[in-house]
Simulated scan of single mutants.
Amino acid sequence: MLRGDELIILPFLVSLYLIAASPSPSPTRAEPRARAFGMALTGGSLIAALGIAAVFIGLGR
Rank of each mutant, 00 (worst) to 15 (best):
E31W: 01
G38Y: 08
M39N: 02
F37L: 10
A34K: 00
I9Q: 11
S15V: 12
S24D: 01
S26W: 11
S26R: 11
P25Q: 09
V14P: 11
F12M: 15
P23Y: 08
P25H: 09
S22V: 02
M39K: 01
L18K: 14
F12P: 06
A34M: 05
E31C: 02
A36G: 04
G38A: 05
G38P: 03
P23Q: 04
L18M: 14
S22A: 09
L13F: 14
T28Y: 04
V14Y: 13
V14F: 14
I9H: 04
A34Q: 01
Y17V: 01
S24W: 02
A30K: 05
P27C: 00
R35W: 07
R29F: 13
R33K: 11
T28P: 03
L10P: 04
S15T: 14
L18D: 12
I8P: 12
A21K: 05
F12C: 15
I19S: 10
I19D: 06
I9D: 14
L13C: 15
A34Y: 00
I19P: 02
R29V: 14
M39G: 03
M39E: 03
P11Y: 11
P11N: 14
R33W: 07
P25A: 12
S24Y: 03
M39R: 02
G38T: 04
L16C: 15
S15F: 13
I9P: 03
E31S: 06
R33M: 07
A36Q: 13
S24H: 05
A20D: 11
F12R: 13
P32W: 08
S15M: 12
P25M: 13
A20F: 10
L16N: 10
L18C: 14
Y17E: 15
P11T: 11
L10M: 11
S26V: 00
S15L: 14
T28S: 02
V14C: 12
E31M: 01
E31K: 03
M39L: 08
A21I: 10
S24E: 01
V14S: 12
S24Q: 01
A30C: 03
F12G: 14
S22T: 08
A20G: 13
I19Y: 06
M39W: 03
S15P: 04
I19H: 08
L10E: 03
A36T: 07
P25K: 09
V14K: 12
P27I: 00
L18V: 13
G38F: 07
R33H: 06
E31D: 08
P27A: 04
I19G: 10
P25T: 08
M39T: 05
I9K: 06
A36N: 06
A34H: 00
P23C: 08
T28K: 02
E31V: 01
G38N: 03
L13H: 15
S15G: 10
R33I: 10
F37G: 00
P32F: 11
L16V: 15
L16T: 10
I19T: 11
L10N: 04
A20S: 13
R33P: 02
R29Y: 05
P11E: 15
T28N: 01
R29I: 13
